[in-house]
Nucleic acid binder design. Structure first.
Lengths: 152, 152
DNA sequence: GTTAGTTAGTTTAATACTAAGATAATCAGT
DNA sequence: ACTGATTATCTTAGTATTAAACTAACTAAC
């Protein structure tokens, strides 16, 4: 979105912040995507493995909420990880609507090597900010994200 | 990415900011996507029309750089807008590698009604921040985006 | 218990996107 | 002029994503 729009000052500020938000997200995502491609992983697949590593077994439902992806998409992402034997699926016996997703031994070893390789890719994008600035930015983004996630 | 990762303080800060960045971008994008769907527009299509409205005629190349999309994708996006007669294509006579993309009368009228409808969708996501905070966030995001867009 | 409503997951169809390669036009150096 | 490198666009093939429709399983109310 160009800066040529002539609206009120607050409109201009908001639109400018929007552009910067999208560009930053796109650029960081592109970097992470490239780094993950070496391991034949998409960001969503990485997100699933990482969540399982740090949070333990989860339902597909929980994974979908965590990654902000549709249930249909989670089905596919988990399918692909299952084919590579990085995770297992098991239908819950207590409530048969749920499916437990768990890391296999292989999957755990795999994500334990990939994760530390991705961390510096992310941190490097942030080194331009001081600790204080980084925390401020995170807090601002949290508020914006929460607002945007709200109704309408 | 969960908060369970135990790394250095600066790693934790950077990863947390990364999560917040992605969530905010996803949430705002989802809102804008829904608003544009009413007009059968994708975000990329809207981006092209908006750029043409505020910057005038552009080459596909310039559009690709502006929207951070691949040249192949721009071809498709412009194709679809051309089919709806919202833009025209014309190969440059000075340098025949370039293709000029311009708004048609219809396209200009169209984006002039859609744009003011999208602005409040964006600004509403930002109202939780003061003008000062919004400008700070934009500046931080600009720096992060520029860093991430850089080499490797 | 039966019915109605909700929730989890899967399937299907359509779309957007990228990467890689092909084509064509231009430019720089000889 | 000729060669090689660069640039812009288009094409192709493959993947990720969503929305919507569907099945299955649970819950609550009567």
């Amino acid at each position: 979105m160009g800066t040529k729009h002539t609206g009120s000052a607050s409109e201009v500020r908001a639109l400018d912040a929007y552009i910067k938000l999208m560009r930053a997200a796109d650029s960081v995502t592109a970097r992470v995507t490239r780094a993950l491609a070496k391991h034949d992983l998409t960001i969503s697949q990485f997100g699933v493995l990482e969540a399982l590593l740090h949070l333990g077994e989860l339902h597909q439902n929980e994974l979908g909420q965590k990654l902000l992806k549709s249930s249909g998409n989670i089905t596919l992402v988990v399918d692909n990880l299952e084919k590579r034997k990085l995770i297992t699926r098991e239908r819950s016996s207590e409530d048969r609507r749920f499916v437990w997703v768990r890391l296999t031994k292989t999957g755990e070893a795999f994500i334990k090597t990939v994760f530390p390789e991705i961390v510096p890719v992310i941190t490097d994008s942030m080194v331009v900010l001081s600790p204080f600035e980084l925390e401020k930015m995170a807090e601002y983004l949290r508020q914006v994200g929460q607002r945007a996630a709200g109704p309408a």
